[in-house]
Amino acid sequence: MRIALPEAALDFGRVADDVLRAAGGVDLARAAESDPRAAARAQECLAGIGMYDIDPRGCLEDAVAAAELCRVAGGHAVPYPVAAMLLRTSDATPFALVDARQPIIDHALTAGTWTAATLTGELFEAEPDAPVDSKVAPFAMTVRLRPVAGGTASVLDRRLGLLFGAWHLLGFGQRALQLAIEHTRVREQFGHPLSNFQVIRHTLADLSVGLEGLDLLCRFSLWSAFTDGSPSLADALSVRLEAQRVVKHTLRMAQQFHGASGFADEYDISVLVRHAQPGLRLPTDRGATLALLRTAIDEYGFDGPFHAGGVR
């Protein structure tokens, strides 16, 4: 059993965090809503730390580095499709999972052509069409899909698409909890810091349990993506489901604890809440994820490695 991430991956994450923080952190995301050069700055930072040298399909070690980069990028709401570029199918063709009935891709303008796949493996070429024009998805666009004749997205690609998305959301959630802790420690009402109130402390505790559990499930399912030889997406879907449950709730409560400030864009929590929405809703909302998970469990089970050595 090895649950702790290797030191090399943690180091890589720390370097990425330092570089992105020095480039402005969440300010980059804030700026990108009106200035496309912010996305370019984010890309330069990511290229500078070696993002394009990672081969996440090649081995678990690289996949862990890629996942950690997604997590760190989520923590700054980096205005660049990190997971999609890590899974690019050619030098300039990012890879995204879509709902073919309503295809939308976040940060779609990053490339003129995308490789898109549904969770059932249908493969498409996608071209950006029109912005969705929403404050909660400032970089998302509808896309036009063209089927790739005879093409099927591999199980590994679909697993990694789901997993990197979950690691990305984990980063959003961890940062939101950190902001909630910082804010409730210093914000005083009724003569006390908010964190003196038990209902706030206990909510923070529950949020931390959710995020720690999600963190571990992310690690487990990444390991499973490389060790489970079946075509099952159950482990990857379970992480997406848990990320949707935990991160949505964490963002909501962190925003609540900020009071009215939580809706003001000068506070990071407001930007994080908005920019996390595409990841929370694309390619499946929680209900659709859950239904897909049940189908996958019906077909392939959900034992993991924990029942070796005997019948249940």
């Binding site: 649950i3 379970s238 489901l241």
Partner: peptide
Amino acid sequence: NEWSGALVQVRVARLLAYRAVE
């Protein structure tokens, strides 16, 4: 569907216990 979701919560609880053990 919730039965499937419960299996996920079971796995999360298991992994959190394993982390404490580690």
